[in-house]
Computed example of a mutant assay.
Amino acid sequence: MDPYELLGVDRDADDATIKKAYRKLARQYHPDVNPDPAAQDRFKEVSHAYEILSDPQKRAAYDRGGDVFGGFGGAGAGFSFTDIMDAFFGGQAGGAASGRGPRPRTRRGQDALIRLDIELAEAAFGTTRELKVDTAVVCETCHGDGTAPGTRPVTCETCRGAGEVAHVQRSFLGEIRTLRPCAACRGFGTIIPDPCRECSGDGRVRSRRSLTVKIPAGVDSGTRVQLAEQGEVGPGGGPAGDLYVEIQVARHPVFTRQGNDLHCTVTVPMTAAALGTTITLPTLEADLVEEGAETDVQTSFELEIRPGTQSGTEQVLRGFGVPGLRGGRGDLVVTVAVETPTQLDGEQEELLRELARLRNETTPTGQLKAGAKSVFGRLRDAFGH
Rank of each mutant, 00 (worst) to 15 (best):
P181M: 09
C182R: 02
A184M: 01
C185N: 05
R186H: 15
F188D: 00
T190F: 12
I192R: 15
P195S: 01
C196A: 09
R197I: 12
G201K: 15
G201L: 06
D202A: 15
R204N: 09
R204F: 14
V205D: 05
R206H: 06
S207M: 06
S207P: 02
R208W: 12
R209C: 03
R209P: 07
S210W: 11
P216M: 07
A217C: 06
G218C: 14
V219C: 07
V219I: 06
S221E: 07
T223D: 01
R224D: 04
V225H: 06
V225P: 15
V225E: 10
V225T: 02
Q226W: 10
Q226D: 00
E229L: 01
E232I: 13
V233E: 05
P235E: 08
G236T: 04
G236K: 06
G237I: 09
G238L: 03
P239Q: 03
Y244P: 00
E246I: 04
I247R: 11
V249W: 11
H252A: 01
P253S: 13
P253N: 04
V254H: 15
V254F: 15
F255C: 00
T256P: 15
R257W: 04
R257E: 00
G259K: 12
N260V: 04
L262M: 07
H263I: 01
C264M: 13
T265D: 12
V266W: 15
V268L: 01
P269R: 04
A272M: 01
A272V: 00
L275N: 05
G276W: 14
G276Y: 13
I279K: 14
I279W: 08
T280R: 13
L281K: 10
L284T: 03
A286Q: 10
L288S: 10
E290V: 04
